[in-house]
Structure formats: structure tokens, C-alpha cells
């Protein structure tokens, strides 16, 4: 189906923010995905932070939910209606600080949910505090001595937790559109990190260090190679940042493991349609 995705709501992102690219890539990918079906069958979930404003800028059903709780909300929507396509969005605070436990379990459950983390390595909406992926030494008003605690490597966490699709891209419209298409084709939990900058609080250019795994002949079916590639960038300092699909291997999805949900899927209905 065709659907007007613009909401006409005036954006409050800073002029030139990387988030505009993400939104453009997302709209393109969603428009393509909607064409495949005659139903408005995509739901989006956003957390709290700058990223979450995209909920107001795209005309989609779903929920702009609590900080850190995007993934259980996505799983709940899938459980309520396994026929919906569900995309969750988080920032790095949302995904790696407040909601890290859900991230690990979401990878383990492998529901057919697409999850996009817009990682600018800083809390921007609360004006510049460090997140779990902030560089060592980063200074702000809440940490005047600079960040002393080592950053997490979410790609490694996702690989270790059993995510069936693990990718990282830059905030480039074409790349985002491409990776979302790949994620939609993948049956299972897809983790996509968009490594971007914040023009105000973390204005660093990582793009020039990035190289595409797909051009290097990386074997995305091999966990060992994926782990090695994940270790090339530790979110602190580096010469090279691999982007593209680190790992992809389908396995049985959450919705197919439970008879009740499988039945709903097979009949193309949700619990809402069951009158008792």
C-alpha cells in the first residue's frame, strides 16, 4: 500500500543533525516495505532521547515509549500481533545504559524484530553526558575530570548474546535504506547500529575511518570472523571502523516457537480478532 509518511510536524532536531539522514533512509525503506503488502502492517517503537523525535516525524502506528524499554515493547507488540512488522529505535543511552538487559535477552529470544540504535556516543537531549559508548577522556559538566570508564562494545555483546543479524552502518541515507532492506529480508532479530556524531556535544568525524565489510570479502556466516571484526573498533580510538553486516545466520524465531502465536500467524490474525 501507499501511505503518506510525512506528518508535517516541524522538526526540533538541530540544523544539519545526522538524524535527518536516518529519517530519510527510514522513510525510503518503509515506503518500499509497505508496497509489498496491502495492509498498514508496520509498527514503530522509539525510546527517549533525540532519536525518539522521529516518532513525530513519520506517520506510523506504534508507540514513543519509556527510556530503555523499546525492546520489551517490541516483543509485546509481536506477541499481541505476530503479523505486524516491528521496528524499534533507540539511542545509545536507551539501548546500552538504561535498557541493556533487554538488549541481551532480545538477541536471545530472536523475535522477528528490527532494532536500530542511533549511537552518537553521548546523551544529547540532556545536554552532553557520557553514555556507555562514550570515548575515554570525554569531558562534560557532569564529569569534569573526563570519562574514566571503558566503553562497551555492543557489537561483541550482540554476537555473544546470539543475535542472528548484527550490523553497523554510518548515518548515510543510502546505507540506512540498504541495511533496513537487508534486515527486513532477514527472519529474526536484527541489530543495526548507526554510528553517527552529535554536532553539538560529540562532533567527531568517524566516517573517514569507516570501511565496508562487504567489500573486504568478510564471511558473515562465521562467528569467529565476526568477533575479530567487532574487535577492530572499541568505541574509543582506532584507525579503522568496519561497517556492514558482521554476522547473519537465521535460526528459529520466537513467534514460531509457541503454538498459540504460530496459529495467529498462520491465520493472519491477532488476539484482537479473537472474540471469546
Amino acid at each position: 500500500m501507499k501511505k503518506e509518511l510525512n506528518t508535517g510536524v516541524k522538526s526540533t532536531w538541530c540544523p544539519g543533525c545526522n538524524n535527518f539522514m536516518v529519517l530519510a533512509g527510514l522513510k525510503n525503506a518503509i515506503a518500499k516495505e509497505l508496497e509489498k503488502s496491502d495492509k498498514d502492517d508496520i509498527a514503530i517503537v522509539t525510546g527517549i532521547g533525540c532519536h525518539a523525535k522521529l516518532f513525530d516525524y513519520i506517520n506510523m502506528n506504534g508507540i514513543n515509549t519509556l527510556h530503555g524499554r523499546v525492546l520489551p515493547m517490541c516483543l509485546g507488540i509481536k506477541t499481541g500481533n505476530p503479523n505486524l512488522k516491528v521496528i524499534g529505535f533507540s539511542g545509545d543511552g536507551d539501548a546500552y545504559a538504561e535498557g541493556i538487559e533487554h538488549l541481551i535477552h532480545a538477541a536471545r529470544y530472536n523475535a522477528d524484530v528490527k532494532y536500530v540504535v542511533m549511537n552518537n556516543q553521548v546523551f544529547a537531549l540532556t545536554v552532553g553526558q557520557p553514555t556507555p559508548t562514550t570515548k575515554l577522556g570525554f569531558k562534560g559538566k557532569t564529569n569534569p575530570e573526563g570519562v574514566k570508564l571503558s566503553p562497551l562494545n555492543p557489537i561483541r555483546i550482540m554476537l555473544a548474546s546470539g543475535a542472528s543479524f548484527v550490523a553497523r552502518v554510518s548515518s548515510d541515507v543510502k546505507q540506512i535504506e540498504w541495511i533496513l532492506e537487508e534486515a527486513f529480508k532477514h527472519k529474526g532479530f536484527a541489530f543495526i547500529e548507526i554510528l553517527q556524531s552529535c554536532l553539538i556535544f560529540n562532533n567527531i568525524n568517524l566516517k573517514e575511518k569507516m570501511y565496508l565489510l562487504e567489500k573486504e570479502g568478510h564471511n558473515k556466516g562465521d562467528m569467529g570472523s565476526a568477533m575479530k571484526k567487532a574487535e577492530e573498533f572499541n568505541y574509543d580510538s582506532t584507525d579503522k571502523i568496519p561497517i556492514g553486516i558482521f554476522y547473519q545466520k537465521e535460526r528459529e524465531i520466537f513467534e514460531d516457537k509457541f503454538k498459540q502465536l504460530k496459529d495467529l500467524k498462520n491465520k493472519g490474525i491477532s488476539w484482537k480478532d479473537i472474540q471469546r
Binding site: 524499554r69 525492546l71 520489551p72 517490541c74 509485546g76 506477541t79 499481541g80 538487559e101 488476539w271 484482537k272
Partner: peptide, 17 residues
Amino acid sequence: IAVVNAALGAAITGAKS
């Protein structure tokens, strides 16, 4: 925390949760 948020997710699709 996951429990209540997932239950609300199911609820917005129309399920009695």
C-alpha cells in the same frame, strides 16, 4: 520491567493483557 512493558505492547495491539 520487561514484563510490564511487553504486556503494554501486547495491549496496544488490542490484546487483553
